Amino acid sequence: MGVGERKIVDFHCDALSKMQEMPDIVFKDDHRLDVTAERMAEGKVALQCFAIYLSSKRGRPRFEDVLGQIDHYRSGVLGLGGLQWLRWREETTNIGKDALSWGMLSLEGVDGLEGNLFYAQLCFELGVRFMGVTWNYANWAADGVLEQRNGGFTEKGRKLVEWCNESGMLLDVSHLSSAGFWELTELSKRPFIASHSNAAAICNHPRNLTDEQISALIAMDGRIGLTFVPWFVREGGEATSEELFGHIEHICSLGGEKQIMFGSDFDGIDAWVKGLEHSGKYSDFAEQLLRHFPEAFVKGWLFDNAITYLKCHLPSKPVQS
């Protein structure tokens, strides 16, 4: 796999939340961001998923804040950053074919929908394609992974999943409670993903996935976006890029080599894995992977596994009448 052939998909960053907090940030090359257009080009990131995350610093989550981050994406990332917008299955065939980079929108926690499924429909119509039901704690739809009671979905939450099944909105279980994870295996009609989680057997953090959860994702042909949060990589908090290899090897030992992708959590962290400080470092990381693993596997983890999932499960573009 030569340098020119290398392409990367990253399934999670929080650049939009930073841009909402600091409106003077310029996505093109502002180094207050881990993910910029310049750094994406340096790291050969062909597709970046941008999460809409509403920080508690802004007070009660409101739908107008969700709309505000969508506006930052449209004007600042697509406009000034020059990215293309991935919304439909048919568009996936264009990713990685030239020097253009693409962006995709996800919602990290449905708190800002305020329990209103009409707002969920608006998000879909405005181009959001993935939805994480919770952040770490309980909301109107379900419990998060740090909610001590470990509840599953509420009645409204089950209606939200039903709407996702009908609309084509895809689901993300990073941050969802264990009970919610297992309930969703019964409720969801499509394979779901964990956009930014690692293996709990290697690093026992509540945000990481147990072997049973990993096996369930493998069985449904979902995806696992290994993340670069240092305290999810190794206990103690400091980590190097090579320490991610243990998570990769463990998931592969469970049969998940075709389910692995990456979800960095860049711009959602204030400490970084050594060697993975921003999206421009992906090229160096790819070289590390190639020194330790078969090329076909590495291409899958960096690009093919994520794109194959999107080709199968993104909604199709409506036919114009």
Score class of each variant (00 low, 15 high):
15 A>S: 15
18 K>M: 08
28 K>D: 15
28 K>R: 15
31 H>L: 14
32 R>M: 04
33 L>Q: 02
36 T>I: 02
38 E>R: 13
39 R>G: 04
41 A>S: 13
46 A>I: 05
46 A>P: 09
50 F>V: 04
52 I>A: 06
54 L>F: 00
55 S>K: 09
55 S>Q: 06
63 F>D: 09
63 F>E: 07
69 Q>T: 09
70 I>K: 04
71 D>S: 12
81 G>Y: 00
84 Q>C: 13
85 W>C: 02
89 R>I: 01
93 T>S: 12
98 D>L: 02
99 A>W: 09
100 L>P: 08
105 L>H: 01
107 L>I: 14
108 E>H: 11
110 V>Y: 01
112 G>K: 02
118 F>L: 13
119 Y>I: 00
126 L>I: 01
130 F>I: 10
133 V>A: 12
134 T>S: 13
137 Y>N: 14
137 Y>R: 14
140 W>S: 09
141 A>V: 07
144 G>T: 01
148 Q>T: 15
149 R>W: 12
157 G>Q: 12
157 G>W: 09
159 K>R: 13
161 V>D: 04
164 C>F: 03
168 G>F: 12
175 H>Q: 11
175 H>Y: 06
180 G>W: 10
191 P>E: 10
198 N>T: 06
200 A>E: 07
211 D>A: 02
212 E>R: 12
214 I>N: 06
216 A>T: 14
217 L>Q: 01
218 I>Q: 11
223 R>A: 07
227 T>P: 02
239 A>H: 00
244 L>C: 05
251 I>M: 05
255 G>H: 07
265 D>A: 14
269 I>N: 06
270 D>N: 08
273 V>A: 11
275 G>R: 04
276 L>I: 04
278 H>M: 03
280 G>H: 07
280 G>I: 08
282 Y>C: 03
286 A>I: 11
292 H>W: 15
307 I>W: 01
309 Y>I: 13
319 V>H: 08
320 Q>T: 09
321 S>G: 07
321 S>V: 09
